[in-house]
Design a protein around this nucleic acid. Structure first.
Length: 640
RNA sequence: GCCCAUGUAGCUCAGUAGGUAGAGCACAUCCUUGGUAAGGAUGAGGUCACCGGUUCAAAUCCGGUCGUGGGCUCCA
């Protein structure tokens, strides 16, 4: 049977009559075989299809080139096969799975000895050979029974084959290598122009630690060397910006072995940053009608039994005993805020009530997941809880979204990814709350995003059981995503703890409760901020604003005078009167990423001015004290 | 928690076939008073993560513990 398909090549449309069941590759070969060299695959119905695609129905196919971000996963997947082929040629391994990932690919393999750096080099060399050989990649569908024979020596592949529901399975083959694989793939191994194997690590078959322990090699590839180099530059740059490294060299914080893993000690300079953020946070909350509260670090276990946390969250809680009574170190702040809400009978006139706290909590995270300040066991959440009526939900959500963006934009984040997590429509029964509540809540979340023209990704089934939520992540300069604000409904706690208010009708009504955190945790937020700014904090956040450097000791007296004046004006200043050369003092201040350096030598003493150097701009000229301080103060005020 | 790697002066790291440790930076003292990213000399500083074992002898070999890193996994 003939069907009609439309192929778009560089915006130009070709309408073709083809036989049903024809492979896209054949169609293109007939049309113009050079297309197979220029394009990587096609975009059709919101997904990437490779040229092995069998055309079974009418449709539109937009050919896309190798460097199109939508085509890169095919290249990565192909590179992972090339790598697996190379590994099979060199070692005795059992292949598990090797998908493309967000950036790059990996392959999990079972091998007795771990891979070394030398192994990686050898594998890379073999991969080069495979690429040079430019093996044609073939695709075929084979009966399941045949596949079982083909993979009879590989328990992993067999397990996968057995789980496939169709009668036939998809196989990709290049030279002697073949693999069970859904694709997509490129047409030949030579299409991969530049690749790099990045790291080796352990993993488990199916991510299950009870099952076979595997070895994973990660890699990346691109259609040209330039793009690969750009990626590698970003990769290296990210390593250099590591907040653990900068936290140490800038003396911001440290995790001490004596204190314990996942517990951060904020040094004086880190604490300045934290305090500035906290103060800003408090001011903004008060401005926006929040009431600040403070609640203790420990509470009776009974409280957590009432909320249900004790049952579900127990292994993450630190539990201990006082006078024979069980206590818990708080892993979250909400129960305490709820107690404050419940302390009085609330009228509909009192609502909304917004409570907020920079509340420090402790969670027993598994040792293997701890990571610098980004994943810790003790951290301060900027926790807020809104208690409101149904008719207030929409404006409260809208305000929270605005608030969230206002805050994070202040820290120089400009690109965001917004995710809306809603119920799994297939399993509505596993969620707390009524249909009506879910519908209202989702509608208000969507409305808030829509009215603000915010693009978002809707994830069905990603909501936690107690309510729908919006998660905002920030993208930093290197394009990395950082978890940011979250706004979540909670239909569970109000029910369990009986959170009500007295309505206009004199009756009790269930409250709507919204959890929201804007920074997330202070630790993770500042950790991310360190990497985002690469330690070059804008003046308002910089632990030290100015370092005063003297050229010789003739400047000491004047320098001390300036230092005193600046300190009196609330500017954070340090003096460097060491008997060192100016260039040395500059180097030290530059290394410490201090935004301003005031240089005082004989000339300045004589004229009463200051020679000013900016951390990132170099020498910016001579200024009168008032001139430069007002500039700096303005910069701080503007939070630039 | 699991797999793999790793743990030497405040920091970054060297230490090659087991014979009780080195460098650079930082620090201290002295010399140098030098104008926009490292002036010079001298010196102090380490129970080589911890515990145990093998050995005449352990930073080095073996076992265990703890920490850290890369992953897996988890995230009410």
């Amino acid at each position: 049977m003939k069907i009609q398909i439309k192929i778009y090549i560089n915006g130009k449309r070709s309408i073709l009559e083809v036989k049903e069941g024809t492979v896209l590759k054949e169609i293109l070969t007939n049309l113009d075989s050079s297309l197979l060299d220029k394009y990587a695959g096609a975009w059709s119905e919101d997904r990437f299809v490779d040229f092995y695609e069998t055309i079974n129905k009418e449709g539109e196919y937009y050919l896309i080139q190798f460097d199109d971000p939508r085509a890169l996963p095919a290249m990565w997947h192909t590179t992972s096969h090339i790598m697996a082929q190379a590994v099979k040629r060199l070692y005795n391994v059992n292949l598990a799975i090797g998908p493309s990932i967000e950036e790059g690919f990996y392959y999990d393999m079972e091998k007795d000895e771990p891979f070394t750096d030398e192994d990686l080099s050898a594998i890379s060399r073999e991969m080069e050979r495979i690429i040079e050989s430019n093996y044609e990649i073939e695709h075929s569908m084979i009966p399941k029974e045949e596949a079982k024979n083909l993979f009879s020596d590989n328990k992993f592949k067999l397990e996968l084959v057995n789980e496939i529901e169709d009668d036939s399975v998809s196989i990709y083959k290049q030279d002697e290598f073949f693999d069970l694989c859904r694709g997509p793939h490129l047409l030949s191994t030579g299409k991969v122009k530049a690749f790099k194997l990045l790291s080796v690590s352990g993993s488990y078959w199916r991510g299950d630690e009870i099952r076979e322990s595997l070895q994973r090699i990660y890699g990346i590839s691109y259609p040209d060397n330039k793009t690969l180099d750009e990626y590698l530059y970003r990769y290296e740059e990210a390593k250099k910006r590591d907040h653990r490294k900068l936290g140490k060299s800038l003396d911001l914080f440290k995790i001490y072995e004596d204190t314990g893993p996942g517990l951060v000690l904020w040094h004086p300079k880190g604490t300045i940053i934290r305090e500035i953020i906290s103060n800003y946070w408090r001011e903004e909350h008060i401005k926006r009608g929040y009431q600040l509260v403070t609640t203790p670090h420990i509470a009776k276990a009974d409280l957590w039994k009432k909320t249900g946390h004790f049952e579900y969250y127990r292994e993450k809680m630190y539990i201990f005993e006082i006078d024979g009574v069980e206590y818990v170190v708080k892993p979250m702040n909400c129960p305490n805020h709820i107690l404050i809400y419940k302390n009085k009978i609330r009228s509909y006139r009192d609502l909304p009530i917004r409570l907020a706290e920079l509340g420090t909590v402790y969670r027993n995270e598994r040792s293997g997941v701890l990571h610098g300040m980004l994943r810790v066991r003790g951290f301060t959440i900027d926790d807020g809880h809104i208690f409101c009526r149904e008719d207030q939900v929409s404006s409260e959500i809208g305000d929270s979204v605005d608030f969230a963006f206002d805050i994070i934009k202040t820290f120089g984040y400009e690109n965001f990814v917004v995710q809306l997590s809603v119920r799994d429509p297939e399993h509505k029964e596993q969620y707390a709350g009524s249909d009506k509540e879910w519908e209202n809540a989702e509608a208000s979340l969507i409305k808030a995003l829509y009215e603000r023209g915010i693009e978002y990704i809707k994830e069905e089934g990603e909501a936690v059981f107690y309510g729908p939520k919006i998660d905002i992540s920030m993208k930093d300069i290197l394009g990395r995503k950082w978890q940011g604000p979250t706004i979540q409904f909670d239909f569970n706690l109000p029910r369990r703890l009986g959170l009500t208010y007295i309505g206009e009708d004199g009756k009790e009504h269930m409250i709507y409760m919204i959890h929201r955190a804007l920074l997330g945790s202070m630790e993770r937020f500042v950790g991310g901020l360190i990497e985002h700014y690469n330690g070059n904090f804008p003046a308002w956040l910089a632990p030290i604003h100015i370092r005063i450097l003297t050229v010789t000791d003739e400047g000491n007296e004047f320098a001390e005078e300036i230092h005193k004046k600046l300190s009196e004006e609330g500017l954070r200043t340090e003096l460097d009167l060491r008997n060192e050369q100016l260039s040395k003092k500059i180097r030290d201040a530059e290394t410490e990423k201090i935004p301003y350096m005031f240089i005082i030598g004989r000339r300045e003493v004589k004229s009463g001015t200051l020679s000013v150097r900016h951390h990132q701009e170099g020498d910016i000229g001579s200024f009168k004290l008032e001139e430069i301080t007002s500039r700096l103060k303005e910069e701080i005020k503007q939070r630039r």
